[in-house]
């Protein structure tokens, strides 16, 4: 019998809580829906949330036994409202709203731990109780998974990168949607290939910064002669966390680890500021030639962060904003021109 699948949307969702309950967390990303939904939320919501709701209403998510919606932003808050609104959506599918703090400090970690506990209780009530050891095991498994994923990601620091950006994006899709043990097997296979990979140096090295980004953008960059070596995105390095310290309360440790991960533009205060500094280090470590900032239309956080990102982006590399939606469709000429500019800059 297949294990129940639970949809999740935001990388601040502690997946270990679902793993431990024997559930399969399924990350909804660029493949969020079949089309955009404009009726309930209106067209001022971001296309990710609209397409998630569109999929929900069309029955595409009937394959899930439930969903956990992190309160990560204004639009996600409305997705939760819409999930069980009206006759169409009010189908009794299990849904949990997880509130996530916007800053990282001792107090917010404690508060988040209490919210995770509430999430865990809700999962146990719905899908059955489990002993605490199962959570510890699940944390260990995810630790191993993210360590391996990070190792593969870091292989992209070399020139040529150990794995092409589009291939990495597809690999990540597997990790986002499969049970961790299956993902581990897959990553193990890829790790061997990556280690073996050799090749010629390719074009300018780029980072994509954004929300849930589509592999379509990788393909555009690659076809223009560029190389995506890093994604600071919901389906990039923001998916994952550092190792969990299991000395104390595992929920508290989980809360700290998730709040400490590379920050989404939703984060504020000290963690947001240090996130900007970390970006500068990434430019050096990954030897970036340029950055493409994918600002999803109607995402207040991504759009609101852009002026600051640009102002602080004195990293010695050009940064380009590309407005897009969840489909990842951007003007190919803009990308081509940017990559061309980077190539010329690299040669000179």
């Amino acid at each position: 019998m297949s294990r129940p699948r639970i949809a999740w949307f935001c990388t601040y969702t502690p997946l270990e809580i679902l793993d431990a309950a024997g559930l399969v967390p399924y990350g909804i990303r660029e493949d969020s829906g079949k089309g955009h939904e404009d009726v309930i939320l209106g067209d001022a919501a971001c296309s990710f949330v609209r397409s998630c709701l569109g999929a929900k209403l069309s029955g595409a998510y009937d394959r899930f036994q439930g969903a956990v919606i992190a309160h990560s932003c204004e639009c996600m808050r409305r997705l939760f409202d819409a999930w069980s609104h009206g006759v169409e959506a009010g189908d009794g599918q299990w849904v949990h709203l997880l509130d996530v703090p916007r800053k990282k400090d001792m107090k917010s970690a404690s508060f988040f731990a209490a919210n995770i506990k509430r999430f865990q209780d809700a999962v146990k009530r719905r899908f059955g109780d489990y002993p605490e050891e199962r959570l510890v095991e699940a944390i260990g498994r995810r630790d191993a998974l993210w360590e391996m994923l990070e190792e593969i990601r870091r292989s992209r620091m070399s020139d040529p990168p150990g794995i092409r950006g589009s291939e990495f994006a597809r690999l990540l899709h597997v990790v986002l949607t499969r049970p961790p043990e299956e993902s581990l097997e897959k990553l193990e296979e890829v790790r061997i290939e990556v280690t073996a990979e050799k090749g010629e140096r390719r074009g300018p090295r780029l980072m994509i910064y954004g929300g849930p980004i589509s592999v379509h953008i990788h393909e555009l960059i690659e076809s223009a002669g560029g190389e995506v070596v890093l994604e600071h995105a919901c389906n990039g390095m923001r998916f994952g966390r550092g190792k969990v310290d299991l000395e104390g309360d595992p929920l508290r440790a989980l809360a700290e680890a998730y709040l400490a991960k590379p920050p989404c533009p939703r984060m504020l205060g000290g963690r947001a500021a240090s996130g900007m500094d970390e970006l500068r280090s990434l430019v050096r470590e990954y030897r970036l030639d340029g950055v493409i900032y994918c600002a999803m239309k109607f995402c207040s956080n991504l759009q609101g962060q852009w002026p600051l990102f640009r102002e602080r982006a004195a990293w010695g590399v050009p940064v380009k904003i590309a407005e897009s939606d969840i489909s990842g469709k951007v003007d190919p000429r803009e990308i081509e021109a940017f990559v061309k500019r980077l190539r010329r800059r690299k040669v000179s």
């Binding site: 939320l41 919501a45 971001c46 409305r78 609104h85």
Partner: peptide, 11 residues
């Protein structure tokens, strides 16, 4: 331009 209120209007 207000996601918080506008997106809730219909509901």
């Amino acid at each position: 331009s207000c996601r918080h209120f506008h997106c809730a209007g219909r509901m």
